[in-house]
């Protein structure tokens, strides 16, 4: 069901939700598609600004070359590391079976 303004369709929202690992419901898809369409219509205004020769800003404060010496710093114990784990086994995080290929 493509949206009226054509900015973002329901299918596209479904695709984006999959990319973002969100198992959204059908009802949500309807709501989000409509809302995102309105929001996108509004934020698309950035395109009105003539900014071809303007450098982009990725960082609010212009810092460069911030480094740390290659020195050990105490980290977490295994117990601390696993303290929040939904499941753990043999000192490792236990997770459900992985379908995807290893990257």
């Amino acid at each position: 069901m493509p949206s009226e303004s054509g900015a973002i369709s329901r299918d596209e929202v479904a695709h984006l939700a999959r990319l973002a690992r969100l198992a959204v419901t059908e009802t949500e898809l309807d709501t989000f598609a409509g809302q995102l369409d309105v929001i996108l219509g509004s934020v698309a205004r950035v395109g009105e600004v003539a900014a071809e020769d303007i450098p982009p800003t990725s960082h609010a404060v212009p810092l460069e070359n911030v480094f740390r010496p290659d020195e050990l710093r105490p980290g977490l114990s295994q117990e601390q590391a696993l303290s929040g784990a939904p499941a753990a086994e043999e000192g490792r995080f236990r997770v459900p079976r992985i379908l995807g290929e290893e990257a």
């Binding site: 950035v46 395109g47 600004v49 900014a51 303007i54 982009p56």
Partner: peptide, 8 residues
Amino acid sequence: QAQKVRTL
């Protein structure tokens, strides 16, 4: 484009 607007 948003990053450029940020510069402006």
